[in-house]
Design a protein around this nucleic acid. Sequence first.
RNA 1: GGGCGGGUAGCUCAGCGGGAGAGCAUCGGCCUUACAAGCCGAGGGUCACAGGUUCAAAUCCUGUUCCGCCUACCA
Length: 889
Amino acid sequence: MSQDLLPKTYDPVEIESKWYDIWIKTNCFKADENKKNREYSIVIPPPNVTGSLHMGHALNNTLQDILIRYHRMRGYNTLWMPGMDHAGIATQNVVERQLAAEGLTRQDLGREKFIERVWEWKQHSGGVIINQLKRLGCSCDWDRERFTMDEGLSNAVREVFVKLFEEGLIYKGDYIVNWCPRCHTALSDLEVEHEETQGSLWHIRYPIENSEEYLVVATTRPETMLGDTALAVNPADPRYASFVGKHAILPLVGRRLKIIADPIVAMDFGTGALKVTPSHDLTDFELSIRHDLDRVTIMDSNAKINDRGIHFSGLGRYECRERIVSELQEKGFLEKVTPYVVGLGKCYRCKDIVEPLISKQWFVRVAPLAQEALKAVQEGQTRIIPEHWVKTYYDWMNNIRDWCISRQIWWGHRIPAWTCQECGRLVVAASAPSECPYCESSSLLQETDVLDTWFSSALWPFSTMGWPEKTPLLETFYPTSCLVTGFDILFFWVARMMMMGIKFMGNVPFRDVYIHALVRDEHGKKMSKSLGNVIDPLMVMDKYGTDAFRFTLAALAAQGRDIRLSENRIEGYRNFMNKLWNAARFTLPYCEKIDSNLDFRSISNFSLPERWILSRLNRTIATVSKALENYSFNDAAQSLYEFSWHEFCDWCLEISKIQLADEDPVVSSRAAAVLNHTLDSLLRLLHPFIPFITEEISSKLNSGSAPILRGEYPTQNDSLIDEKAERDMNFLMSVISAVRNLRAEMNVAPGKTLAVTLACVSEDQADLVRTNAEMVTNLAKISNLDLCQLTPLFSPPQDSVTAVVSGARIYISLRGIVDPSVEITRLEKEIAKVSADYESVEKKLTNQSFISKAKPEAIQKQRDRKQELTTKMEGLRDALNKMLSMQSG
RNA sequence: GGGCGGGUAGCUCAGCGGGAGAGCAUCGGCCUUACAAGCCGAGGGUCACAGGUUCAAAUCCUGUUCCGCCUACCA
């Protein structure tokens, strides 16, 4: 492959789709369910069937793909299980909107037809996200794709429901729930979002029966007074002690309200007196149980006032509020109104304001399940990473409330419970019973509600693998190795999977839970359509390529911190892709000719830069592997970036140009082999992050061999770590940099070669330079390098500028160019810097406490530094003195 | 109310006990035969504030302050 066949800039478009097709065609992503040895598995957090790829998905799936590809290359039998959930409310909303456009409602169609319609929608427009995940390069085992409404998964749902019901862990009852008047369904506590909104606190007078007195209560929702059935005060509140047991008269309505005492009432809030509306407030509902209070429901399922609402009947809840307030005012019941910020509960799907309402619902008694899930984390069967989420998990598990699982919609798993129309008993069964087991009547009516989507998602880690059957897949891959997810669904999903996995599989669903950050815009704002700050991942991939995008996400994925994504960061990594591409363009032609098997046994014969890059490579391998094992994606990415660009490209490639041109074929071919080896290893290291470009380059580097995706991930070879080579190279690189620096400071044309005198502090140092003189002169553009020892007799060349590196003095002769005053200023500045450093070191070393208490290594380090700074200072002072005398002379 | 995370270069962030770092942006010089999406250099920071622990603090502890998020039955 000749380099002119490769374009100068990397163009991702064709390469990406080409490789994805090849991977799919050659079954690269397939898991082997029958190979029980070193298995690694992840189940995807199922995206919503109505969804399309956003930044959160992109990050989440990029990280999973990195883990999967890494382990696959490490030789693990990997399974990445893909799929989607059916998103009951969201999907139903989508299809209902479609119907509305045709002037129809779901009721017009009827349940069966409507469900058919939803499936139709799913066939045609659902699941676009799957293709977008492919675009992102996700190496899921697509043949195993699952959907929560699949037959198998639906069986699992019914099986679990029946089992939990039989054990008394599922029950049905009249309770107050969060009701969304727009979606017409109950919501679980988690599905309600709280939002602080400016509201008011209305202080209303409740006259005491047979008395001139009244009690003032403060409320944020005056309209609910229509449903008041009591007043409550704190039993410890002396202000109201005399009122307890008496009755008040409900303004406008006239109902008698018992005044009760309960410790739940906060004395310091409002007036310390609470109106109790059991049917429309969660706290009040609980009070009604404790004190056996009446419940008066005054709203219907649309949140309109019903016929219990006297002359307000038929009004919407907010219209009613206005009317009530003005009527209270007119009649003198309103004492005052104060501004107040309320936490309004909103439906997480449609943002309508949630209304607490009493209705018949199904619940899971979660406390016993939660205890097990709590224990599993406490005992370390499942690790949560980063660890600070553990506390959040514990808190929630410890304060968990029963889970309302019924939803009054049609799309979803219909509750497998039937009521006998003859004897009225409830029959719960995995499949439809033909007759009532109690009275043998065949007149059975199934529940119309469906289950919360999260109920089926909770089973995902095992239902996708074929449970309740005992499948080889479950046998091999359960528990899964890791779950990767955002903290926003820690409770919704992770906690519930833990409960269900332990309950039904007898084992935790995953060994590790890695919780990643949220992706925000560059100013830290949550991306949202209404703010208009959304960056579309598909646009990013089009513009910069998938690899650049993935690398950006990985590089920004520091643990425990949100990601602020900016486009110019992505652009920077796009440039990195191009850099790699060009490094390959340079390297490839040389690689064709060589036998790529480097014999590391003869490493001692390798040149210094060769030993150096191999040493650096192996350190990088160690860093990257360790970082990935610890889910430190950013560390891994950063280390790879640094090595690729600033060691491999900036130095190794440049140095190799000299060696590749060497007349000695041993030298040139070894240089090519080292380049080839380093590039090949680097591509493998990078592959999990940037699969496409690495595959493309690798295919050219090793034409005819299997995809790199199935290749081996490099492992660290300790025998190639060479500290001396690193030290020596650091010295030589510093010398080169120093010369370049002086050249730039002195405004010497880059093309102009220079005469340099290098006075070394030791024979070893001089030897080192001598052996690598070609490299030094080449990279520093030196025409004439004069090497000598720094002896007392040494006299620096005339008309030169000076730098000091590790004691060695570098003099660049600039006859006629040197302006002493410029050089003096430069040296003085340099000396000031060095002497500041010197003083801080000296201060430490003269501090007795430091000498006696600090670690010996720390002391030695300061001594070494002092030595280094001393020689540097001497060199600079000498140079300065010389310049000063030159100027005056 | 409880909890968590954060305030480090102009911007976005690493670092989390021993010489203040990166990317982008800025400035100067280069079309050097892999790459101008590039190369070679440079400038830029009392690491939010105040105390404390330590020989040593951006880093650990306490408090203050400002931001963000999660959670909760003060209506």
